[in-house]
Design a protein around this nucleic acid. Sequence first.
RNA 1: CGGGGCGUGGCGCAGCCUGGAAGCGCGCCUGCUUUGGGAGCAGGAAGUCGGAGGUUCAAAUCCUCUCGCCCCGACCA
Length: 586
Amino acid sequence: MNWAQSSRLADIGGPMRQSNHLGKTLREDPREAQTAAHKLMLRAGYIKQIAAGVYAYMPLLLRALNKISQIIRKEMNASGYEELLMPVLQPKNLWLDSGRWDDDNEIGSSIFVIRDRRGSTLCLAPAHEEVITDIIRKEVSSYKHLPKKLYQIQTKFRDETRPRLGLMQAREYMMKDAFSFDDDEASLDGSYQAMHDAYHNICRRIGLEYRCVEAHTGTSGNNRRHEFVAIADIEEDTIVYCDNCEYAANQEMGEARLEVFPQDSEEKTMEAIYGPGLIGVEPLAEFLNLPVWKTTKTLLFQADDKVVAVMVRGDCDVNEFKVKDFLECNELTLASPKVIKELTGAEVGYAGPIGLSREVTVIADHYTRDRVNFECGANRTDYHYINVNCGRDFPLPNFGDFKLAKEDHLCPRCDQGKLKEARGIKVGHIAKLGTKYSEKLNCGYLDRAGKSQPLYMGGYSIDINRLTAAVVEQNHDESGITWPTHIAPFQIHLIGLNLETEEVRAEAENLYQRLLDEEIEVLFDDRDLRAGEKFGDADLFGIPIRLTVSKRTCKEQKLELKFRNKNQSNFITYGAALKIIKDFCV
RNA sequence: CGGGGCGUGGCGCAGCCUGGAAGCGCGCCUGCUUUGGGAGCAGGAAGUCGGAGGUUCAAAUCCUCUCGCCCCGACCA
């Protein structure tokens, strides 16, 4: 950001004297907060909880939120998007049309429903696909009107069963969502790619540590989708990424290559081995004197009304999302011990593909296939088969990718890379929605030939609250927040000490005015408090540069400047300080 | 929605088991002294003990119901 841009951002809020500021700081951690970001935001007075999952954004946080919003606006505008604002209050009918009202829909179950005094049913919208599509179908009728690209920054509502972690999973939250409407798939591809690039710019400008990952599209989706995940070690999503190339994916979707080993040159005779109580592949492999990769995990799942056995190599775990997609089922859960006993004839832990009840469909991960003389459960308590071979000892099952990609697996895209795992917070996602909404809501246009066509739609969202929480999670130390420069509520925290001394107060007031004249965003701590309290609050607030005026600085005709993320403060001249400040803000 | 926990001045907590004058630390107000990492002394204000019902001579404490908040799980931006 250059200096001119920064001063435009100063419009985000007026100057502020801390004596006027609302938002007291807390010395102790509030009991309800678990994560660092939640604790610090409460302690710094950035948020106030009003109800479960409902927060007031206090003045300092609002400035940060506005800055993030401004960065997003700039990138969206630069990508040719127009900003609009759609209603939060929406009629039920639109949602019935899109099919997202029902409880069994992933979004339907968390809609806030409202009834007005005339008896109409409305909702507090959790999303805006319906409304934007409704608007576009009324506005757009010809290929000549296309493409259209819109965005808004608006409050969303979700009747979460369990709000948690402060701004991370609230019931009311701020979101940027954008929609593109193109005449065909190829143009949609272009729009999608443009948002992909814009999102990278946004994350970089905010100063976020993040990964863009390939994400799960759900059973119906053959459409592409990426998630932007902020790296943070709190419970949420797990992603896998390559340490060598650009490959990154949500673990749900993550692919992996496994190391393959030399196989026996000839097939041996299958035999059943008695190995009592050997549950778990490690002790089993040791007992059988086999490498773990020669063992096989066979798990039974209840897939809607069917039972399916899934085989993966012993050193892997089953990825239930992949299985679910493959089977195109709605519910997938591990089969109960009772069902397992019925269908395998054995206790849990001894299932295998050989001699299973006919009702059970067997599917297997690719990597189970080309092994010679492997192990699997014998469907008999305490027994395992060894020297098993696919096709010879049991019919070839359907093969697919059913394993969970994990740390140290080989990268599916490049030769040298290994996968790493990281935990993160989903802060944005971009998706090709295709004609899903345009068809349901009858949103089309006439092409050159005068023929009616559905619009191709893209949806792109950023959860601003969550993004902010992620930034704090990534930028803090023991004593408080350490905001990245471009989204800090203020650039400078001016601290006046010894303000009871006329000379010092005058000096501080002068400096405050001078910084304002320079259009520098400055928070002036003009309160008559002890140094410890002021510095403590400054550390908590996390404004990047702390400038102190005191008896001491006045005497030496200097200023004391300290960066929030450094330990050392320096006494320097006015001129030097101003130069540092200006350079810093560029 | 299943399982668990907690509601006592603004904040953090003790008291509850075993019923018998509502306490502590921080914050807040007044005054004096202090003044570079959350000061000292003196004085002071502030709580229907989440709510309703019940048991009892007597309930923060025991019982029933209810509301709220938090955690784990399922779900999710």
